[in-house]
């Protein structure tokens, strides 16, 4: 019973997550950027823009210039999250279906992945404390901002519980997800009975479902930010949005 509920819930959440994000990306891509508003000094070439974007995404460069505390906590959290996610890949893929070198890479990450979890929760805790203690940040926070951090912290903590407190039978979990991932319809392997596991999975489901409707859209959003992704070349290149082009056909222009 529990297995079926979680199986269906994961299918539902996955579809929502993938379709939701794809739809957002489609929307962002569709809306024109009618004017060049790059924050200067900006790169004057496309490859320069790639580099700028890389520094923003991989190093949080602007944030570093801006506020060292947020940068440290935020970076620990995101880097931790990334490593933890990579570490989780082994639960969803069958080694027989991936090339060896990728699998080796994933295996290589495993030991670091353990510490990554702590880094992630430490960073999150720092951000959460900041959100409460620094009056400027408290002022701009809605309940959802606090809850988002709580949700992620709880995901981390319930993960630790499975590992260190109430050891969960990971092999069964893996079998469950493999049966989902490889679409063994209605032959889902049973989930082990474990409270931390139930909590962990439920919170992850919530995270997946709210992703396309919340501020987590910053992840795709950053790539579409005109101040960061535009080439500084307006004197050389005209950019006319389709709706702006329509104005050109008016008779006011010589």
């Amino acid at each position: 019973m529990i297995t079926t509920i979680y199986a269906l819930a994961f299918y539902f959440a996955t579809i929502l997550l993938v379709v939701g994000i794809a739809y957002r990306i489609f929307e962002y891509a569709k809306v024109p950027a009618p004017l060049n508003i790059a924050t200067t000094p900006a790169p004057t070439t496309v490859s320069g823009v790639w580099l700028r974007m890389f520094c923003e995404v991989a190093l949080f460069e602007s944030l570093f210039k801006s506020n060292k505390w947020i940068w440290i906590f935020g970076y620990l959290f995101h880097a931790g999250l990334l490593l933890v996610l990579i570490r989780h890949i082994r639960y969803f893929v069958d080694p027989r279906h991936v090339p060896d070198f990728i699998w080796l890479g994933i295996a290589y990450i495993q030991p670091i992945g353990k510490y990554a979890g702590f880094a992630m929760v430490f960073g999150l805790a720092g951000l959460a404390i900041r959100r409460i203690v620094v009056n400027r940040v408290r002022y701009i926070s809605s309940p959802s901002d606090h809850l988002m951090l709580l949700l992620l912290i709880m995901i981390g903590v319930s993960g630790f519980m499975m590992q260190y407190v109430d050891r969960t039978d990971i092999v069964s979990v893996k079998n469950f997800f493999l049966s989902l991932a490889y679409l063994n319809m209605f032959d889902w392997q049973p989930l082990p009975d474990s409270l931390p596991l139930m909590v962990h999975l439920t919170l992850v489901l919530i995270l997946m479902i709210i992703f396309p409707y919340s501020k987590l859209l910053h992840a795709p959003g950053i790539f579409f930010s005109p101040t960061r992704n535009q080439v500084d070349n307006p004197r050389e290149k005209r950019r006319l949005a389709p709706w702006a082009k329509a104005l050109e056909s008016g008779s006011d222009k010589k």
Binding site: V31, P32, A33, I37, G74, K215, A241
Partner: peptide, 24 residues
């Protein structure tokens, strides 16, 4: 406006309330 300006659209969605700009 959210159909006309990508900046408006993306910026309204993307802010995480990190607070980095609050003292700028």
């Amino acid at each position: 406006l959210r159909q006309k300006y990508r900046s408006f659209r993306v910026y309204l969605d993307s802010c995480v309330k990190c607070g980095a700009c609050t003292d700028k």
